[in-house]
Design a protein around this nucleic acid. Structure first.
Lengths: 145, 145
DNA sequence: AATGAAATTACGCTGCG
DNA sequence: CGCAGCGTAATTTCATT
């Protein structure tokens, strides 16, 4: 569906590195005019290749220093929608991945400290049809870009 | 340590929702002048609360439709640095989390298709001192914002 | 120390060729 | 796609509390 050529990919890479980069900067990078770059970026937003822009935050500096992944298992009758809805209401849940096989879901959590983590896991366990959890504590992380 | 007040938090929320939001928009939101908003955002970048800005991409629309998490275990002699360095050289690796306990690391992967996934897992397994892997295939995901 | 207003520069945006 | 023109935003400076 989307025709995204090599120039578009270069623009994407540039915007992933710095989402506030100006069109004139990118125009120099790819050797096009400012207007052409804007049209390409606008188009990629329209077709949904670019879904948005966001600020990257150092959560540890805001006092949310603990990061964890929790694997969750549910009863056979539990639907995906319920899983996600339960989790999204907790601000500590950064992301929910539904999984093929075992476990049923993987949740990315951010909390202030260990007792906070325990509290959130307890909430998740109590919320409905959870049959088991296993939590992986993150010691360090690296993310592309 | 960063003093981040309630106004700063409102600006952070605003910029996480839309990283290209203008200072004048945010100024209206928080009831300050454009200059004051810019100073606050600049300051949060300086102290490292805001680490950058980035474009959000729909990788499926670019043909990278498969997402997975791979848990990895290593020999006792393997250092964290080696683990991360191995992974970061593969463009398919989106993120690496080193973990307390079992497993030793969790890798977030994006690939074009299943055979591509197999190929990457093979590469990871062969690269050094891996003693075991377990891969969780992502069926669906939800991310805050 | 942080703010607002004013002035300058740069950028975003649109229409036309 | 490039060019050109106009409007808007970013950025710096200065003055104020």
């Amino acid at each position: 569906m989307p025709e995204v050529d090599e120039t578009d990919h270069r623009l994407l890479r540039s915007l992933r590195e710095d989402g506030r980069r100006t069109y004139s900067e990118m125009a120099k990078e790819v050797g096009l005019s400012v207007a052409a770059v804007k049209r390409r970026v606008d188009r990629m937003r329209e077709i949904g290749v670019i879904t948005g822009f966001t600020a990257q935050i150092d959560h540890a500096k805001l006092g949310w220093g603990i990061e964890a992944f929790t694997e969750m298992r549910f009863t056979g009758t539990t639907g995906v929608r319920e899983i996600v809805q339960t989790a999204t209401q907790l601000p500590e849940v950064q992301a929910v991945f539904t999984i093929a096989g075992d476990p049923d879901a993987l949740m990315h959590l951010r909390v202030r400290d260990i007792s906070h983590l325990q509290q959130i896991i307890d909430k998740l366990r109590r919320s409905g049809t959870v049959t088991g959890t296993k939590t992986l504590m993150v010691l360090g992380s690296w993310t592309r870009d």
